[in-house]
Simulated assay, not measured.
Amino acid sequence: MIVDDSAVVRQVVSDMLTRDPQIQVIAAVSDPVFALERLKTLSPDVIVLDVEMPRMDGITFLRRLMSERPTPVVMCSSLTEAGAATTLDALAAGAVAIVTKPKMGVKNFLLDASTDIIAQVKAAASANVKRLTPSARSDSRPAAVLPSPLKPAADAGRAGQKFTADAVLAATTGAMKRTTERIVAIGTSTGGTQALEAVLKVLPKDAPGIIAVQHMPERFTAAFADRLNKICQVTVREATTGERLLPGHVLIAPGGKHLMLKRSGAYYYAEVLDGALVNRHKPSVDVLFRSVANCAGPNAMGVIMTGMGDDGARGLKEMRESGSSTLAQDEASCVVFGMPKEAIRLGGAQRTLPLNEIAGAILLYAAGA
């Protein structure tokens, strides 16, 4: 079901989705009030939902939907700083994914982004909806999801070749031997906003430095980091080039950019750079994990959490081979088990843990246990 007050968006998205033989659009309505009426007789697997609409806003509708009949929801949000804050509210309310759209040229943008949108709708259909319910959120389980960033079709690696981390940096064996400072690298995607929150909220101020990739559109990561910073004891910021990774600090990759860990002597710092999409993502977890394997090795822990696809699986294996401690979130607590499952299959994860035990594992690692 598509719920959007723009007739153009409803038509374009309907035509786009119905071209895929696995997707059927059973309704396209102009506001949540009409949607509620249609839901009396229809049971969609996924709802594509606009945020700003007449009669009832998308977030109010979403909260009602999740309390009465939890259904995977893909939010359709304008790509603005103001819209980012509103959309994060939607994620907290239980949305599954974000489709970002510009204020101008919406039709052409949606057509260019059709491959990504179809993939996100399919991912939402396979999401573990139990993880999206209020009871799951009260148990510190992941409640919402963010997709990969939607970029113009001309961006390298978008529609054609699927690039690996080799497109951004080469693997090396230059990691320094063990030091007293330990760091943690986290990679996550679908379900990751709430999964990261669940982990970071329980960490103390003296937790090890954390560097993280969450697949998220441009202009959303700053608002996401700011929101986490307000509710966590650790300091959370969107990463900038040259910023040191310190104990009690968390650096989040900016949307639309890759994030790497670099080393100068015994100090670790962030480097933010552009480049090709890796595994169709920017930021890419594989790029981050490879950089950590290259320069930190046995001084690092790698954590891969809920997400669609396989980004980060090879990088986690490289981290393990460089001497890092590695773990994956278990299937039962994931919204989508794709990324952890692939990491386990490749042998990158030394062990699996439920989401509510990952923060404890990080603290044990930092203590040398």
Score class of each variant (00 low, 15 high):
I2K: 07
V9L: 01
S14M: 01
L17P: 04
R19E: 09
R19F: 09
P21V: 09
V25N: 05
A28H: 11
A28S: 15
V29Y: 08
S30A: 15
P32L: 01
V33E: 01
S43Q: 15
P44T: 03
V46N: 12
I47R: 08
V48T: 15
M56K: 13
D57T: 07
G58S: 06
R63H: 06
R63C: 11
L65E: 02
E68N: 14
P70Y: 09
P70A: 12
P72H: 10
C76P: 07
C76Q: 06
E81M: 11
G83N: 10
A85T: 14
D89H: 06
A93F: 11
A93E: 03
A93W: 07
P102G: 14
M104R: 11
K107G: 03
N108L: 12
F109I: 08
L110Y: 09
I117H: 09
I117V: 14
A124G: 09
A124I: 08
A125Y: 11
S138T: 06
S140G: 01
A144M: 09
A153S: 12
A153I: 05
A154L: 03
A154D: 08
K162I: 10
V168R: 02
T173R: 04
A175E: 05
M176S: 08
R178A: 13
E197V: 02
E197A: 13
V199P: 11
L203T: 00
P208H: 02
P208A: 04
I211N: 09
V213T: 11
P217Y: 05
T221K: 13
T221Q: 09
A223G: 15
L228N: 04
C232L: 04
V234I: 13
V236S: 12
V236Q: 00
E238G: 08
A239H: 12
A239D: 11
A239S: 13
T241H: 10
G242R: 10
E243G: 02
E243C: 07
L245V: 05
L246Q: 13
P247D: 12
G248H: 03
L251S: 10
I252W: 09
A253K: 01
P254M: 07
P254F: 00
G255D: 04
L261W: 02
Y269W: 13
Y269L: 05
Y269V: 08
V278K: 03
R280Q: 15
V285F: 07
V285K: 01
L288S: 06
S291Y: 07
A293I: 03
N299M: 10
N299V: 02
M301C: 06
G302W: 09
G307M: 07
G307D: 06
G309L: 08
D310P: 01
D310K: 15
G312H: 07
L316Y: 01
L316I: 13
L316W: 11
E318N: 08
M319I: 06
R320V: 01
S324R: 04
L327V: 11
A328Y: 10
A332P: 00
S333P: 05
F337Y: 15
K341G: 14
R345C: 12
G347V: 02
T352N: 00
L353H: 06
P354L: 13
L355Y: 05
G360A: 14
I362V: 11
I362K: 10
